[in-house]
Design a binder for these strands. Structure first.
Length: 286
DNA sequence: CTCAGTGTTCAGTG
DNA sequence: TCACTGAACACTGA
C-alpha cells in the first residue's frame, strides 16, 4: 500500500509513539535474509537495543528512526509492508489511515501478527511491529540516511523542496519515456507511486502515454500543481482513503473492471505503461 | 491453475 | 554514461 502519504502518516505515528523513549528489546525474524538484505537481523537488534529514539525522518518512501547514537534503522515498506503500533496494554493498530485500524480479531486474541518481520518494545511497553507478506520491504542500517544510497539517489520529495516549474520542465525535457514511467522514477519524483501518478495525470488532463519531453510550460505547471495538491491533501487526511474527494480517480480505478467509470461517468481504461497497470480516462486526458 | 499487484533493482540494449 | 524496457523478486487472493 505505501506511497508517500501512507509513509508520511506512518512516520508521524512513529514520532508520537516512540520519540523520547528508550528501546527495551528488538525481535527481528532471525531467519529473514530478504527484508534484512544488507544488515543481518542481529545487527539491527544490536543497533537499536538500549538506544533512545530522538526523532524520525523520511524521504520519498523511505523512513527512519533517529537515535541518540549511530547507526540508525532505515525502513522501506515495499508493496505490502505495514507498521503496527500499540500503547502499553493496548492492541496493535495500523500506523496510517483515518483511525489507526485494528488488526483482525483472531490476531488480537492471540497477540499475533501474521507475516511479522520485526518487533520492537520500548521501556514503557509501547510496541512497534512491521508486517510484510511479500517481503519487498527492507530494514537496513545507515550512519546518515540522507547521505547514502538508496536515499541519496532520490529526486525531490513533494513535501520538501520542490523544483520550480521551469526547473521541472528542464528535467522532463531530457526524458523521452512516457510521462507515467517518469512520474514513477524515484530519482525524479521521490514518493510518487502507481495511484498517485495516475491521479496526477488524470487531474492534469494529460495522457500517461505522452512523452515527458513533450510538455509545454503550462502543462508542466499544471502537473506540478496537481502533484502538490494531491500529496498534501492525502497527507492532511492521514492517508485515509475514505476522505479523499469523490471526484478523484482513486475511488474508481481498482479492479480493472471493463465498465469502470469516473465520478463524472467517463470511461476508465487500463493500459500497462512503464511496466505498471495504468488507469486513465482517454476522453479527458490528452 | 493462472495471473495481477499502492515497489525496486538489475540485466540487456540502444 | 545515460536512458529505457522488461524480467525477477515473494507471496496471496481473485
Amino acid at each position: 500500500m505505501p506511497e508517500l502519504p501512507e509513509v508520511e502518516s506512518t512516520r508521524r505515528s512513529l514520532e508520537s509513539f516512540l520519540k523520547g523513549k528508550r528501546v527495551e528489546s528488538v525481535t527481528p525474524d532471525e531467519e529473514d535474509r530478504i527484508v534484512f538484505d544488507r544488515n543481518p537481523p542481529r545487527a539491527v537488534k544490536a543497533a537499536l537495543e538500549g538506544a533512545r529514539v530522538t526523532g524520525t525522518g523520511r524521504k520519498g518512501k523511505y523512513f527512519w528512526l533517529k537515535l541518540d547514537r549511530r547507526p540508525w534503522p532505515v525502513f522501506h515498506l515495499g508493496m505490502t509492508g505495514n507498521v503496527d503500533l500499540r500503547r502499553p496494554g493496548g492492541e496493535f493498530e495500523r500506523a496510517w489511515g483515518g483511525h489507526l485500524w485494528s488488526e483482525g480479531k483472531r490476531e488480537r486474541e492471540l497477540g499475533y501478527l501474521p507475516f511479522c518481520r520485526f518487533r520492537m518494545a520500548m521501556e514503557d511497553g509501547t510496541e512497534m511491529a512491521i508486517t510484510d507478506p511479500r517481503r519487498f520491504g527492507r530494514i537496513r542500517l545507515a550512519e546518515d540516511p540522507l547521505l547514502e544510497p538508496p536515499v541519496s539517489r532520490l529526486g525531490f520529495d513533494p513535501l520538501d523542496k520542490v523544483p520550480s516549474t521551469r526547473e521541472l520542465q528542464a528535467i522532463l525535457k531530457r526524458r523521452h519515456a512516457p510521462l507515467k514511467a517518469v512520474l514513477l522514477d524515484q530519482g525524479v519524483f521521490a514518493g510518487v507511486g502507481n495511484w498517485i501518478a495516475d491521479e496526477v495525470l488524470f487531474q492534469s488532463r494529460l495522457s500517461p502515454h505522452r512523452r515527458a519531453s513533450s510538455l509545454d510550460l503550462k502543462e508542466v505547471s499544471v502537473l506540478r500543481g496537481r502533484l502538490l495538491h494531491i500529496v498534501r491533501l492525502a497527507v492532511a487526511k492521514r492517508a485515509d482513503f475514505d476522505q479523499y474527494p469523490k471526484a478523484w480517480l482513486f475511488h474508481h480505478r481498482w479492479g480493472k473492471k471493463e465498465d469502470a467509470l469516473t465520478h463524472g461517468k467517463k470511461r476508465i481504461i487500463h493500459d500497462t505503461i512503464g511496466g505498471r497497470t495504468t488507469a486513465w480516462v482517454p476522453s479527458v486526458q490528452k
